[in-house]
């Protein structure tokens, strides 16, 4: 049964006709051509399909596509976007810099989970980072580099806000 799904995707309104019984993951990949979001297990165990739904990280394989009607979805493709132009976000750049990407299959999900964590807790401890990415499996890296990348991004962001504040004071 096809149904019309209208929602905000990476900041822009979209409308798509799709079967009502598919997951958000399949909607993104098969109907909207956004293949950055990966399917690992399709049963909510690996986190490869992580997206932000109304700002909170969820497994898109466990969301029924029409559930996003009227809501806001951000995928990995939407993270680096600034003023419509594509570039890697600071967190994505840190993943590359700290060797947190090997085969890359888990990476979009981990970047999304890392971003969600940093938005709710801008200065997480290493333990909190490990907790924050507990829903994401990576078969390659052993996780340390991923934790490094998230930790360093938090530090960089804090530094930037500080500089920002200092510049404001000087003005």
């Amino acid at each position: 049964m096809n149904t019309q799904i209208k929602f905000t995707l990476n900041g822009s309104p979209v409308m798509v006709e799709a079967p009502g019984e598919i997951s958000l993951l399949r909607l993104l990949r098969d109907h909207l051509n956004l293949t950055g979001t990966k399917e690992g297990c399709a049963i909510g165990e690996c986190g490869a399909c992580s997206v932000l739904l109304d700002g909170r990280v969820v497994n898109s394989c466990l969301v029924l596509a029409p559930q996003v009607n009227g809501r806001e979805v951000v995928t990995i493709e939407g993270l680096g976007q600034q003023d419509g132009a594509h570039s890697a976000s600071d967190l994505q750049a840190a993943f590359v810099k700290y060797g947190a990407v090997q085969c890359g299959y888990c990476t979009p999900g981990l970047v999304i989970a890392g971003e969600a964590l940093l938005r709710s807790n801008p200065m997480p401890t290493r333990a909190e980072i490990i907790d924050g990415i507990a829903g994401n499996l990576c078969r390659c890296t052993g996780y340390q580099q991923i934790v490094d990348a998230i930790e360093q991004t938090a530090l960089q962001r804090a530094e930037r806000t500080q500089q920002h504040a200092a510049a404001k004071v000087q003005e």
């Binding site: 909510g44 909170r56 990280v57 969820v58 497994n59 466990l62 989970a113 924050g132 507990a134 829903g135």
Partner: peptide, 8 residues
């Protein structure tokens, strides 16, 4: 423990 699950 899993944000993705506890959020839903």
């Amino acid at each position: 423990r899993t944000m993705q699950v506890t959020n839903a």
